[in-house]
Nucleic acid binder design. Sequence first.
DNA 1: TATATTTTTATACCGATAGTACAAATGAAA
DNA 2: TTTCATTTGTACTATCGGTATAAAAATATA
Lengths: 297, 297
Amino acid sequence: MNDRKQHVVKMAHELFINKGFQATSIQDILDYSGISKGTFYNYFSSKNELLMAIFKTIYKDLEKMRDELLIGQDRSDIEIFIKQIEMQLITNRKNRLIPLFEEVMVSKDTEIKKFLEQGKLRNIQWIYHRLIDIFGESKKPYLLDCAIMFMGILRENIKFNRIYNESSANISRIVRYSVNRLVNMVEDLSENKEQLLQPELVESWFPNCKKQHYDLNKKIQHIIFLLKNNIGSDKNHMKAKELLEFIEEELFGTKSPRQFLIESAILSLKTEHEDEWRKNLTRLEQLLEEYFKLIKD
Amino acid sequence: MNDRKQHVVKMAHELFINKGFQATSIQDILDYSGISKGTFYNYFSSKNELLMAIFKTIYKDLEKMRDELLIGQDRSDIEIFIKQIEMQLITNRKNRLIPLFEEVMVSKDTEIKKFLEQGKLRNIQWIYHRLIDIFGESKKPYLLDCAIMFMGILRENIKFNRIYNESSANISRIVRYSVNRLVNMVEDLSENKEQLLQPELVESWFPNCKKQHYDLNKKIQHIIFLLKNNIGSDKNHMKAKELLEFIEEELFGTKSPRQFLIESAILSLKTEHEDEWRKNLTRLEQLLEEYFKLIKD
DNA sequence: TATATTTTTATACCGATAGTACAAATGAAA
DNA sequence: TTTCATTTGTACTATCGGTATAAAAATATA
């Protein structure tokens, strides 16, 4: 995206945050960002398309930050999940995302509505997969329901708490409270074997490649996690840890991971000869090969 | 409200259901209901005020139907609660209430927004009180939280189920599933003594008279319930049951209960002389006196 | 530097919208 | 028949999102 165009997006976003979408006229945007109408319609075919651009950039940032919180962590640790949710909520509030979201959902523009619906589905899907990480495959049949209901619980709790408490200080408390309900719900459901939606539906929401990509990332993270737990603490081993963390950062924290750097790091890691270690490292190499093949498409 | 005005409200509602609020222009309403612009703005000061009139009539109907379901029933019976929720959901869907609701919530009109927010609070409050009926005073500290989270669970479940199943056939299934979660949540919360919002807040939402009215209705229903369980099955006693049911219907099923009819019914009921019965009947008389005093204000 | 191409600007314009103003027509009560 | 409120029809304002386009400015190319 053009620098100038980016600037318009940013300025418009500021206006939308302060005045709302509907209440901000095109003319406001033109004045505030200092461009002409012609240029505006050269960049965006409509006001809605501009809003979509805003959403896209926020979503991308959000997902990146969210995934970064997982780097080098135990996926099954529920505390990480809590941190991720908190981060999402705080970002949402900062960008007034929900009011904007709702404003668009009532417009006639079907395309943007579909886009936002998909965003919501993606979020549910993400929660669902995270719940599998946390509660294990055995609870899978109930975890889509749980993901959906968790969203509802969280949403309403935040809404009603805001009526009395404008500060975002207790977002953390609300999230923890809601997650406690979630944990209990998982137990309850798997005990009573009650199911509303079949989790297989989730797979049909999006093209297969997304799922593939997600699974691959998960496998790679898992292997690195194993490797990290397999090293001692002497000087040489500290270097191994640093290398592994570099690989993680490069893979999941940057836009386009540099393959040659990662391969070189792997090479360095091969100096270690312990049996279990070697096995895992070979597996990691295979997965990385798969990974780079996938992102090339 | 004027007959003609009522007619406009009805026609506009039809249009809003079919086309949505924003997408329906004033001109559409004028054409469809056959009035002139001048008349329209004589009735309503704006399009938003018309919508508010629609909401008011629907809310009133809804609350009436909902309360009628309780007549002559055991308030603590959760099955009645389920029926009430189902009824609300079906009415909501029939009137496309939620889309309309959302369309207005994004408008700039603060008055109508406040009105709708209050409606939502009233609903939460109602659920809260019903939960007290069902789970008892001892669980009270957790029931406001439960009411709020139940709303969230229900809402999201319905939303996501609709993606796959357009029919309203399984609304019943969703409600039952959600209520099961609610029951478990009450248990969980009272066991772990976790509380997010203090239920006392509920009282501050609305003027005290509402609460008084609600409590009084509850007491009257309870006494009538006791009386009904205290009569035998011979012919004379069947008449007593009919009289009690008439009183209930007159009190809670009509707009303006006729005091003289109810007093006459009470008089007839006094023919019975059993001890417990007489005591309850006197209590009922007292409560009714209070009741008619209250609705006169 | 001179020319060609692309981008940007300024402005006039379109059709649709919510809401206003008001004189004329209608209708029912006195 | 007169009076008075209601209703109608129509013209009007102001704002909106979006289009059209010619002139100007910036950029690339030769």
